[in-house]
Structure formats: C-alpha cells, structure tokens
Nucleic acid binder design. Structure first.
Lengths: 143, 143
DNA sequence: ATTATAATTGATAATCAATATCAATAATAT
DNA sequence: ATATTATTGATATTGATTATCAATTATAAT
C-alpha cells in the first residue's frame, strides 16, 4: 500500500479544490489506509475515537466521502446494509463473492468477463463507465 | 405475461403458508402484474389508490415483500434509492445497464458471462446462488 | 348460521442510515 | 494581528423502511 502516495494525492486534491488540511483529515486518512478492507463509517469512527477522543462522527462521514471524491476510497452498498468503504488507490478493480451465511467478501476478477461486459454495453449503444458485479452464495466454510 | 398463472402461484403460496387471501392482496398483485417494470412501492401505491382509495401504504409494502417471498417479484436496490420491484415469474434472469444521467434501465443478458461467473465462483470454492451485475454509464440519448 | 380464532389491514410511530444545519473553532490570506 | 473563510462536532432533519396495534375481516369450529 503506497500510504505516502495516497496522502500526497489527498493533499493535492484538497489544494486543487481550495479545501484545507486539518489534523482530523490526516488522522482519518491515516486510519483508513491502515484499516481493514470494507470498513463502515461506524467502525472507522470507533477506531479513530481511541486516538482522537474528540473527533465527531459527522467529520468521519464527511471525510470518507471526500476520499471517495478524490479516488482514494470506494463505496460498497449491499442491499440495505450500511455502506462500506475500501481503498481504491493502487487497488485494482475487482468484483465480490459474498457469502450469504457469514457475510465474508472474496475479491475476484476475470478479465474475460470484463471484456464481455464492455461488449455487452456497446451492443446496446451504452457507454460503460463503471460496474458492479456481486455473486452471492456460500463460501467453502459455510457450504 | 402469465397473469393467471402468477395469481395461482400466489394463492397456493398463501395456502401453503397458512395465510389468507384478501381483496387487497388480489388488487395489489393484479396491479403489480399490469404495472411498468421496475416500479417503487410509492408508485404502486399511487396507482392502487385510484381503484382502492382506502388501501394503505403499509399494506402495499407488506404485500410486495410477500410477492418477493414467493418468487413473483424481485427487489432491485441501487445505492440509497428507493427499492424498485420487477416481475420475476416467466421473466428470465437478466442484468442491467443503468444510465447515470437519466436513470434508464436496460435489461441485458450474456450467457458467456453467466458461465464465466459460475466458473469464477467455483475457482474460489464458492457455491454461487444468485448474482447481480450492473453496468453504469450513459445510454445512447445521454452520451 | 353463529361464534371463536387468528390473520390482515391501515394509520401511525419507530427505526436507522445518511445528510444538513449551525455556532464555535481553526486554518489561511491580507 | 486581523479578517476571511472552511471545518468541526453536536445535533436535527430527512427519507426510506419496518414495527406496532386497535379495528376489521377471513376462516375454522361448534
């Protein structure tokens, strides 16, 4: 994980947008980069609380969204569950296998599928920008 | 659309579950089967109100969920938008191209992708049950 | 048929995640 | 230093979904 590069990207994004850097923003980014994949705002907030007891939930929420805006984070919404966020920078695009029993995420990618998706879009006069593919089922442990 | 067959499926599902048929349930199913693809509870409720002015929102909501339970309807959740429901019976599985500008849904299917998805799951010791594939981009009109 | 039972309805309240508001504070420019 | 303006953190609001519950209705039992 190129932590320092991510931080540079964030700082230059702030500058470009006329936004200011703050200690909270630094802590949030730092903690996010160290955190588990697929973290929720709640979870991130709880980890941050230990180091920065005064930090507010709204601040964490706002800034994780900001990180999505600058391409460092990606939001994953599964049904009505809480949004989860994963690192995007230097993290190749992938799709997910999601276990219906234990909730485990497995990251996968198949270039042949990716190509066929583009073709499928084209064939429908549709310009693809991004996509989401989730396969639900049972992981090895749960089946 | 096999409207009468869908109604039979619904009735036998009710019987199997020890539930009762009601005039509201009949109207909701009937209206749902006639309605546009990808309808929200709100929209369905508003259509129903014309014929059944006393029907309640909660009843529509409850029963569209019931139809999902018996395999006649399918819920589509895109991000934080309202859930939409589509007919499932005799409606082949398909995926969606979703226009980011106008919100249009295009239904698509590619058997080669379906096969590769199964293989991809298998290769990860994962037993696929269902999946969701959405390609976001711009439709012909909007691009 | 009449009554007992149990499920359903419809209005409304509760829930819950996401987002907006706003006074106080902090960062930058002047 | 001071003015300007963005950010923070607490809290309120929103908006969708789901739960509650008394009244009603459908079915079973007598």
């Amino acid at each position: 994980m190129a932590t320092s590069e991510s931080k540079e990207i964030f700082l230059s994004y702030l500058k470009k947008k006329g936004l200011r850097n703050t200690s909270q923003r630094e802590e949030i980014l730092h903690t996010f980069l160290k955190a588990d994949k697929h973290i929720t705002v709640d979870e991130l907030y709880n980890v941050l609380k230990k180091k920065c007891p005064d930090i507010g939930y709204a601040t964490v929420h706002r800034n994780i969204k900001l990180m999505c805006g600058c391409g460092l984070a990606d939001e994953i919404k599964i049904g009505t569950q809480k949004a989860r966020y994963e690192q995007k920078y230097e993290h190749e695009h992938h799709d997910h296998l999601i276990c219906l029993k234990c909730g485990k995420f497995i990251e996968v990618k198949d270039d042949r599928i990716e190509k066929l998706q583009d073709k499928l879009a084209e064939a429908n006069d549709f310009k693809p920008i991004r996509h989401k593919m989730e396969i639900y089922g049972l992981c090895k442990k749960c089946s």
